[in-house]
Amino acid sequence: MFEAKMLQSSVLKKIIESLKDLFADANFDCSSSGITLQDMDSSHVALCYLKLRSDEEGFEDYRCDRNITLGVNLGLMSKILKCAGNDDVVTLRAEDEPNILTFIFDSKNSERVSKYDIKLMEIDSELLGIPDTDYSCVVKMPSHEFQRICSNLSQLGDSVTIDCHKEGVDFKVAGEQGSGAIKLKQTTSVDKEEDQVTVQLNEPVTQSFALKFLCAFTKATSLSDTVNLSLTQDTPVVVEYPIAQHGYLRFYLAPKIEE
């Protein structure tokens, strides 16, 4: 038996909304330690990795008697979650050898209980081993600032060059019709921690990435006030949105490099 009771259905809604356009079908791997999801886009350029820990406060109850994989169409899951109120408590339930995933939405005042079942799918997805490594540079910034930068620069070109150095981080685009550059300086003087831009730098990095994917990742902006960009030269960037009381959602994007 698998049963996970999440206090805020809005968190699950935001996760699925941020994934469903790039990642059509995905396996939720459930174990006693929590729920993980890894999936690649069809071109194998971008990857998402979701971790929701069972011992965090976001779950009111969590039970997973044996490891199970729940293969779900994310478009369908998005439709089901639209049936939940934002303040509803959502319970996910499945048997040990499941064909069906059940969603139960309880309203705050317990006056309305709704239940939806969806059929599970066999998804043959290729899992990649992602090593824990130290990155040359980790930029922490407000998530809405990163969203604005990606949106602004995508009007002029297809790829952004991210340049991390000891003064801060530069984002540059160069297209056929024009170019643009946004410089962010470290802002340690800002009062609120979530408004700060910080750059932890071991080595400077200059790397280009496709804006199409970065813009897609920023659909997760509402999950978190801050976003962390981890970069090392000639390796994929990690774009991480911490999820309070749950874990995190990470996106990996392969760089564009000189041919």
């Binding site: 390796t235 392969a254 000189e258 041919e259």
Partner: peptide
């Protein structure tokens, strides 16, 4: 010219 790489060239299959 900058070309798009694939994640498979950085991470190995599990």
């Amino acid at each position: 010219v900058k070309g798009q790489t694939s994640l498979n060239s950085f991470f190995s299959k599990k």
